[in-house]
């Protein structure tokens, strides 16, 4: 009996140590990517290529979901606000919830599942087919040549995608509230403009999306490079990327919100 208890405790200890070791490896890998980023800044063409795959190809899902999230917010907000006779505040509500929370968070979740997983699969397959090892043999640093450009493309795309998401959302809210339902055009915009603050709301939302971009890209490239070089290993790593980065986005969002909007 005591043997079982001891082995159970050992299991907990083993997992904790493994988790800490993994976290340490990820941190070291993140620093390594930053250290080797010089090449991708010098040869910016590499980053541009990856921007196409991670930024441009994610655009359609970001635009469509932004539009629909905004439309739903407009509809639901109108239903509730018109009970209190303040349906013109629907613009404020849509803009604030998008710019502060939904824009950065939902865009980052979508980005993690579309572009983050693609990043992991690409790097993982390159590792499994020994392309990375081959580069190493030719004295080409795979981290500088393959990983860093993808990382930076992710970091650059994320804030832009989040901004596009928010703008599309506000447009969707406008479409539903003003065009379909008939809320007054002028008060929709003027209430929104007087209640959305540049520094508190928009700048903080932008900073949030930058953090999310760094987190998602760092997790994606690490999982790709750390995966077992088999088909199963790549598949496990991809699942892990999406799960870990989604959890990190939500946790990070809570922490950042607590810092940014406390006492308002």
């Amino acid at each position: 009996m005591s043997k079982h208890i001891i082995s159970a405790i050992q299991g907990v200890g083993h997992r904790t140590l493994e988790g800490i070791r993994r976290l340490g490896r990820a941190t070291l890998y993140f620093l390594l990517v930053l250290w080797k980023s010089g090449t991708s800044l010098k040869r910016f063409g590499l980053v541009v290529r990856e921007l196409y795959y991670f930024g441009v190809l994610s655009l359609i899902i970001i635009v469509v979901s932004g539009l629909f999230v905004g439309m739903v917010l407009g509809l639901q907000g109108y239903e509730t606000l018109q009970k209190y006779g303040s349906e013109t505040a629907v613009g404020t509500m849509v803009a604030l919830s998008l710019v502060r929370e939904l824009g950065p968070v939902v865009a980052a979740l979508l980005f993690a599942s579309s572009a983050g997983s693609a990043m992991t699969v690409e790097i993982g397959l390159m590792k499994a087919t020994e392309q990375l090892a081959a580069m190493d043999m030719m004295a080409v640093d795979p981290v500088a040549r393959v990983v860093a450009p993808r990382f930076w493309a992710g970091v650059i795309s994320m804030p832009l995608l989040a901004a596009i998401f928010s703008v599309m959302g506000v447009f969707g809210g406008y479409l539903v509230a003003v065009v379909f339902i008939g809320v007054d055009d002028g008060s929709f915009w003027s209430q929104m403009q007087s209640n959305v603050d540049f520094r508190v709301d928009i700048l903080n939302g932008f900073i949030k999306s930058c953090f999310f971009g760094i987190a998602v890209s760092a997790i994606a490239v690490f999982e790709g490079h750390d995966s077992l070089p088999t088909a199963e290993g790549v598949s496990v790593a991809t699942t892990r990327t999406v799960v870990t980065s989604s959890l990190v986005i939500l946790g990070l969002d809570f922490i950042l919100t607590a810092f940014m909007f406390r006492g308002l």
């Binding site: 710019v99 804030p159 901004a163 596009i164 928010s166 703008v167 915009w189 403009q193 709301d201 928009i202």
Partner: peptide, 11 residues
């Protein structure tokens, strides 16, 4: 989009 956010929405 960032410009629209800051100028049109954030005033």
């Amino acid at each position: 989009a960032l410009l629209v956010l800051s100028l049109k929405i954030g005033n």
